[in-house]
Design a protein around this nucleic acid. Structure first.
Length: 470
DNA sequence: TGTCCTTTGAAGTAC
DNA sequence: GTACTTCAAAGGACA
């Protein structure tokens, strides 16, 4: 069972002037609903084209606006792409931004990203904005992160793993490097509000890690480790993950928690996924040769600064396994990808309605019946699927439809045929239906015998087809 | 280590 | 247009 929030968890945002991130996400989702999919994607694409536009010449306030917008990518792309006056909803967001200008603790997949207040008179480095953008959406293709590497190095922004945290990955802090300050100085601790998680440790000069009792709600790491991106559904924003996890946390008995799919996440896909489809962005990280000196996430090692206490742990961790600085993989695919790393990356088929249903219900069935064998579980799930009402099934058909729609938008040239006998991989054995006694298609009389001519609506499709033919 | 099993649905090929 | 095949997920079983 994933980690539950600690006692002090929900104090996040009370005194820390932290942006109510979930609310923002809700706003973003609402606003994105009024925009067509294609519009979203085009906007995102255009924003990516203008990727280099953000500069340090932005005023701090403008930078702050971007920080806030950047937390919700759908909105930020529009904001970056034009200078139009934000609509009413955006206005309220701006008010929030003025009050809480994007600094604080941003939930990310493996924990929180701490964004310290800028030093006195200091501009917000564009790299920091971009990093937040990435962290908030927690998945960008490596080519975008390549770009980020330059940004980070140029703008002297670091990622800090606070010492003493049981899981250094659970808390990341974005730091202004000392280069932004007069020589020999460190960021003034007073810049962080007293008691804030951003408050600097006077001894280390680093942001003070929270004590265990004052941890913000830690959204559990997705199971497994880094895998591939080969399905658009694997791209979720932190808002989505939080909402999903919140739904899980507060799930009532018998109340389903629907999987994180496109249905609720339109406009949330990272921009770069929609471009450069000829290279790795279609195939995921494993297809990308890692830069020497870069983490698996594409964040340069040079940009990761550790406090003395955390350094050893991190080194050990990096030695033991290539742990992502920010978890970048779908909860759905991580485990299997970890166990069966794909040697021939490819874009996978979007999941159909039944597959989505299986995803959601499998764990429940496993828990109920103690069976572990997937074949048996799938039989049960198949029966349950048929026991669902049309309305219940319709939800999954709709989710599947949106998955396909998004898949088509993300990979316009993709065909299911591309995955037939993927890259010389041995074809699956054809099932000999002529001998299979469980194949209704092989025995068109089966449904007729079971249900009779009066109840042909119960017949399976193959049997109905056979009936038509005869 | 790789394939099979088992489910449904989508999409492909073959005729 | 119809029939058939493949592949999506999952993980234990098995060659």
């Amino acid at each position: 069972m994933p980690q539950q929030p600690s006692d002090g968890g929900d104090d996040l945002g009370a005194n820390d002037e932290i942006i109510p991130f979930k609310d923002e996400g809700e706003q973003e989702e609402k606003s994105s609903e009024s925009v067509s999919d294609s519009t979203d994607l085009n906007d995102i694409k255009s924003s990516l084209v203008n990727e280099g536009e953000s500069s340090q010449s932005n005023s701090a306030s403008e930078g702050n606006k971007q920080l806030v917008a950047g937390q919700n990518y759908g909105g930020s792309s529009k904001d970056r792409g034009s200078k139009k006056v934000p609509p009413a909803v955006e206005g309220s967001k701006t008010d929030t931004a003025t009050k809480t200008p994007g600094f604080g603790s941003i939930p990310i997949l493996h924990g929180d990203l701490h964004v310290p207040y800028p030093p006195n008179g200091s501009m917000v480095p564009s790299s920091m904005k971009r990093f937040i953008d990435i962290a908030a959406n927690f998945l960008r293709p490596a080519d975008y992160l390549d770009h980020l590497e330059d940004q980070v190095q140029t703008n002297k922004v670091s990622v800090v793993h606070p010492a003493g945290h049981p899981n250094p990955l659970a808390q990341l802090t974005l730091m202004y490097n000392n280069d932004h300050f007069p020589p020999g100085t460190t960021p003034p601790p007073h810049l962080a509000p007293p008691g804030s998680p951003l408050e600097l440790d006077p001894k280390t000069g680093m942001p003070r890690p929270r004590h265990p009792g004052e941890m913000p709600p830690i959204y559990p790491p997705l199971p497994g480790q880094m895998g591939q991106i080969h399905h658009p559904m694997e791209v979720y924003t932190q808002v989505q993950w939080r909402n999903y996890w919140d739904a899980k946390r507060f799930q009532q008995p018998g109340q389903p928690v629907y999987p994180m799919t496109t249905a609720a996440f339109r406009g949330a896909y990272p921009a770069a996924l929609t471009v450069n489809t000829a290279n790795m962005t279609r195939f995921g990280h494993s297809a990308i040769p890692h830069h020497p000196g870069m983490t698996i996430t594409g964040i340069p090692h040079s940009a990761i600064v550790t406090t003395p206490g955390a350094k050893q742990d991190l080194q050990q961790q990096n030695n033991d396994r290539e742990v992502p600085t920010i978890c970048l993989i779908s909860p759905y695919r991580q485990k299997s990808e970890k166990q069966k790393p794909q040697k021939t990356p490819h874009i996978k088929k979007p999941l159909n309605a039944f597959m989505l249903y299986m995803k959601e219900m499998r764990a429940k069935v496993v828990a109920e019946c103690t069976l572990k064998e997937s074949a048996a579980i799938n039989q049960i799930l198949g029966r349950r699927w048929h026991a669902l009402t049309r309305e219940e099934q319709a939800k999954y058909y709709e989710l599947a439809r949106k998955e396909r729609q998004l898949h088509m938008q993300l990979y316009p040239g993709w065909s299911a045929r591309d995955n037939y006998a993927v890259h010389g991989k041995k074809k699956k054995r054809k099932r000999d239906k002529s001998q299979g006694d469980n194949s209704e298609a092989s025995n068109p009389k089966k449904c007729r015998a079971r249900f009779g001519l009066d109840q042909q609506h119960h017949w399976c499709k193959p049997c109905r087809r056979k009936k038509k033919m005869h």
